[in-house]
Simulated scan of single mutants.
Amino acid sequence: MAKTTGLGQGVSALFGDSPDDERFFECDIELIVPNKHQPRFVFDEAGLEELADSIIEKGIIQPLIVSKVSANRYTLIAGERRLRASKIAGLKTVPVVVQNIGDEDAFLELALIENIQRTDLNPLEEAEAYKKLIDRFGYTQEQTAQKVGKKRSTITNSLRLLLLPDYIRDDVVSGFLSEGHARSLLRIVDNPAALKEIRDQIVAKHLSVRQVESLIRKYKKPKQTENVAAQQDIVEQEISDSYCKALATQITNKLNSRVVINRNGNRGKIEIEYYSLDDLERLVSVLTSDS
């Protein structure tokens, strides 16, 4: 049963009073190639079915954005959920807007920014997209924030999620853990045993974020209340692994950056990770502050 494709107000916003602009047309759905730079790597099947039902009922409200790669082939820049749902709905054509892209780097940048702004990415997909922008184009966190229209603190906090081990990140993607749980667990990211223990309790007991934070505080308290004499004795002898991890965790929480202590007998070095030149400047400011 054929349906008239719905275009809503998106066309007028894009083309003013000229919706027949040659960049906008109904494209054969088989001529559109999925975007290899798509930041989303998880697509909810139930959500796609619901979107397909909506498309059958009301049509596609917002056109897909594509780039022309040959006479009869287009690469998707933004709108993969709509493309997938349109195939489920049985559509033969979809409305598209053609963007002229100069080179591969320009395409990657536009694809990432379009999808970050338009798509409901999960927290890890969003963090990976920011990291690609920073790594590929050398953007600072401030520049990345300007590109995607978000606060710099949002970018910094998002990137920190990438410090979590793979199994925790998988839990966030699959929905076993919320973004709030993940942010709480960052406080003990350098203590793998504690991280695994608390993660298992979250899943088994369905703990809230507040309960997790309370649990982490109780877990950290014995380490924080060790008496000064005992700490001095440890320093005079060979520093233990567990004590180094506790110190590293304290510094990590203070600097909001991953810290590793590498020891060699009673000597060693402290390594502090930073994620961009912007982040390095932040760390220098914290470390040199009088407060």
Rank of each mutant, 00 (worst) to 15 (best):
L48I: 04
K196M: 04
A129Y: 06
L163C: 04
E142Q: 07
Q211S: 15
D200H: 09
T225Q: 14
S285A: 12
A106V: 05
F41N: 10
N264A: 10
G102V: 12
N262P: 00
I270R: 06
L177S: 02
I29G: 01
D44F: 03
L280P: 01
I272Q: 11
D28L: 09
Q38H: 12
E179I: 03
G10Q: 13
L162A: 07
Q232D: 03
N227K: 15
V11K: 07
N266S: 12
L124F: 12
D44W: 01
T249D: 07
D233V: 05
S208D: 06
A85N: 01
Q9W: 05
V235T: 05
P19G: 05
E114P: 00
F137M: 09
P123T: 06
E238R: 14
S86F: 02
K147M: 13
D166Y: 10
S276W: 07
P123S: 05
Q141D: 12
Y274Q: 10
F24N: 15
D105A: 11
S184L: 09
D21C: 03
L162Q: 10
D21Q: 06
I29Q: 06
N191S: 13
A127L: 02
L51S: 04
G16P: 00
K220D: 14
V260K: 15
L110R: 14
P95T: 10
A89L: 00
Y219P: 03
I113E: 09
V260H: 14
R136N: 09
A204Y: 09
Q231I: 14
L48G: 01
A52K: 05
R169N: 05
T4I: 11
V212P: 05
V284R: 10
I113L: 02
R263N: 09
A248M: 04
P34Y: 04
L207S: 09
E45I: 09
P165F: 07
D17P: 01
P192N: 11
E128P: 00
H206W: 01
I198V: 15
E273S: 15
I272L: 08
L162R: 06
D20H: 10
L215C: 07
G16W: 05
I239V: 13
T140Y: 01
R267E: 12
E142L: 02
E226K: 14
V235N: 06
K58M: 08
Q38A: 11
N227T: 13
A248G: 15
S285V: 03
N157D: 14
G102P: 08
